[in-house]
Amino acid sequence: MAPADIAPGAPIVELRNIVKRFGSVEALSGVSLTVRKGEVLGLLGDNGAGKSTLVKTLAGVHDPDGGEVLVKGRRVSPWTPLAARNAGIETVFQDRALAPQHSIVTNIFMGREITNALGLIRVRKQTDEANRLMREIGFTSKVFNPDSTVGHLSGGERQGVAIARALYNNADVIVLDEPTTALSLTETQKVFRFVRAVKDSGRTVVFIGHNIYHVWDIADRFFVIDRGRMAFEGDKAAFTGADHLIGMMQQLAETGRADTATLRKSA
């Protein structure tokens, strides 16, 4: 189980006034993002809005040029991939970082194999752990087991492997970067099932997506980024429906700002 040292709904990760520059380009110009424990936060934005920079900042790949990162109220600096991981944030990148010719269990333990003092793999332990992680997100089937080859799995199932891997080490926050891009409807449903299981285990999910309908289906709260700045955010209840959110994003794309007055005040 995920550690439960902070209450559901309380901030677990806070990015404050994050600035990130690449040469003369300012990808993020003062973004503040709060991720609350137990929620599924949908992160939306057009291409080039700063979405991937924000994801990579969450993952620790980018150490911001300005602003600060707080995890469970404590400032973490320097902010590196290892620091993010140690703070309980696991990121599943778009390409999922899998080795397709190898088994599910080998992929789950890629780079952090369970070994004895001689460096020999503890096969039984790894298989048991893999089974546990796969069961935890409902990633089970009569067709495959931890020894199945990842290359023989479907796109959604591969996402399941990556998500199961992210759960190892009891991560508090799972960041999913475009997990449903290029997936069929059925496969997308599979991924949603995994994400809901992760949420039900008390963990927090940040879900980044292109397809607004996908994000609408899965997220509790939305954060829209535009030109390196937060454009608007709101709980699901603040919108009348997916079309409301899409309308606001279209407005944002056309006029550069969205009319937040249409949002309902959340309770």
């Binding site: 190898h102 080998t106 890629m110 780079g111 793999i121």
Partner: peptide
């Protein structure tokens, strides 16, 4: 069965993945 051999296979299968996973 050794970490080294497994990592050799990971690097050969997908070096970018192996790097992302900290190998």
């Amino acid at each position: 069965y050794h970490r080294f051999g497994i990592r050799v296979q990971m690097v050969g299968d997908n070096p970018d993945s192996a790097r992302q996973m900290g190998i």
